[in-house]
């Protein structure tokens, strides 16, 4: 009997499909057009200690097949989230993972301490990989020492499930993955967006006010697959694959390179009903291939080569 249930260590999901942070708001915005129960869980818009206004416009530039954004983590802040949002999403039949993004470690602790006092939070995703803020952001994830210290400091104040969302904007993701595992993360979220630019050739101006932004959408899937495979070979904790997923075949590919669940992101803007479509596609596939659990696929890439970039000449 095929089931979509998957396990991410201590976190059990009814579907391997989660909604990525920044692509599902606070869980309420899409509720009138798509049922949240089709998601195994969703990761909230990143929450900071107080309201953040975000970056100046323009914040978006659509490229040929993908999307560049520089939102700058605009969000309502942890107090408003706890007071105004959380009571309205706790009855959703899906796991609520709160993304936390701050400038310094003390703020991560402060936000998590506040969230520890309330019910309805199933875990945290530590966003230490945002490319669009000057302080904090991906600087944490690019430095394994900072990654380990941050994760361990949050671990020290919470028994909840914790995943660290890491940046692909490094030569190798291996040491950051191992640092997060060492710090006590239950899982890793791979990957956040890739630093990119869009230029208007006529005006010679950048299309984003902040010059660079984070690139997402179907074109980044190959980058994400490589990072998930690299991470899978580096750690023992489960990996949540993120990057350009639009079809159930994409989901299966992420499992093959080592994911135990996935997040869908930019494609939700276009198709809020995507999670339900992916669930159905996966179930049909599992039945025809006689697969009981998607965990049977995790890390089944058929290769005898270790993870490597390039090959001997």
């Amino acid at each position: 009997m095929s089931t979509l249930n998957v396990s991410l260590g201590s976190l059990q999901l009814s579907s391997p499909i989660m909604a990525a942070s920044g692509c599902y708001g606070y869980g309420l915005e899409y509720a009138d057009v798509a049922n949240p129960s089709h998601l195994g869980g969703f990761i909230t818009k990143s929450i900071s200690p107080e309201r953040w206004k975000g970056n100046p416009p323009p914040r978006l530039a659509e490229t040929e097949f993908g999307l560049l954004n520089s939102i700058g983590l605009a969000n309502m802040g942890v107090d408003a989230f706890i007071q105004d949002v959380l009571p309205r999403i706790t009855n959703f039949d899906t796991k609520v993972i709160v993304s936390v993004a701050c400038k310094v470690m003390e703020e991560y602790e402060l936000v998590v301490r506040k969230l520890e006092e309330v019910e309805g939070v199933d875990g945290y995703e530590l966003n230490i990989s945002c490319p669009n803020v000057k302080e904090g952001g991906m600087a944490f994830s690019q430095n394994p020492k900072l990654t380990e210290e941050l994760v361990s400091r949050v671990r020290a104040i919470s028994n909840r499930w914790i995943t660290a969302k890491l940046t692909p904007n490094t030569a190798s993701i291996k040491s950051a993955c191992q640092a997060a595992e060492q710090g006590g993360a239950n899982a890793l979220s791979l990957i956040n967006t890739i630093v990119g630019m869009a230029v208007d050739y006529k005006s010679r101006r950048p299309k984003l006010a902040t010059l660079t932004g984070g690139y997402s959408g179907p074109p980044i899937k190959p980058v994400a697959l490589a990072r998930v495979w690299e991470g899978y070979n580096a750690v023992d904790i489960p990996i949540v694959g993120i990057g350009g997923i639009v079809s159930w075949q994409d989901v299966v590919e992420f499992f093959i390179v080592g994911a135990s669940a996935v997040q869908v992101g930019s494609a939700l803007y276009t198709n809020p009903g995507l999670p339900a479509e992916l669930n159905q596609g996966l179930l049909d596939y599992m039945k025809s291939e006689r697969i009981d659990s998607l965990s049977e696929l995790t890390g089944t890439l058929k290769t005898d080569q270790p993870f490597q970039v390039g090959a001997p000449v």
Binding site: C23, Y24, G25, E29, P58, L60, E62, N69, L268, Y269
Partner: peptide, 17 residues
């Protein structure tokens, strides 16, 4: 009018001053 992502307030992409 503004370059827009989700259209429902999720992505915060269509901000104006």
């Amino acid at each position: 009018e503004q370059q827009m992502g989700c259209g429902v307030g999720v992505c915060q992409g269509c901000a104006v001053k």
